[in-house]
């Protein structure tokens, strides 16, 4: 089994606070992965709001927010295990994030020892 990070991206900051229904759908998806014993880390939410997000750049430049050049922002991540990246993609496709125009980046984890 390999490990894959699923990185969630949203485009609209107003989607960041999910409705109770969206929350339930999301939990159903997470529960479904855990029920297959393929959840490695339930991950975390990354706050994109002012005061919680800054970007640090060369030459001592610090900007507010995570999204200066690109519109979309990372909202969170989880880590799953799967035999192949294709299987990880199948799992990612079941996520309800696509209903609100979000996206998921699937990346194999190479562990640093």
């Amino acid at each position: 089994m390999k490990e894959f990070a699923l990185i969630f991206r949203l485009t609209d900051i107003s989607d960041f606070q999910p409705s109770p229904e969206q929350m339930q759908e999301r939990m159903n998806w997470l529960g479904s992965i855990a029920a297959r014993n393929q959840l490695v880390d339930k991950g975390n939410t990354l706050l994109p709001v002012p005061g919680s997000a800054k970007t640090v750049k060369p030459d001592n430049v610090v900007t507010d927010g995570p999204y200066t050049e690109i519109k979309e922002f990372i909202s969170g991540y989880i880590v799953i295990k799967a035999a192949t990246i294709e299987e990880a993609v199948v799992i990612a496709k079941e996520n309800p994030i696509f209903k609100i125009g979000g996206s998921i980046e699937v990346r194999e984890v190479l562990k640093r020892d």
């Binding site: 339930q24 939990m27 159903n28 997470l30 529960g31 855990a34 029920a35 014993n37 959840l39 339930k42």
Partner: peptide, 11 residues
């Protein structure tokens, strides 16, 4: 929902 949380805590 509780089962979803429980399975995430411990498989």
């Amino acid at each position: 929902q509780l089962y979803n949380q429980l399975i995430v805590v411990e498989y």
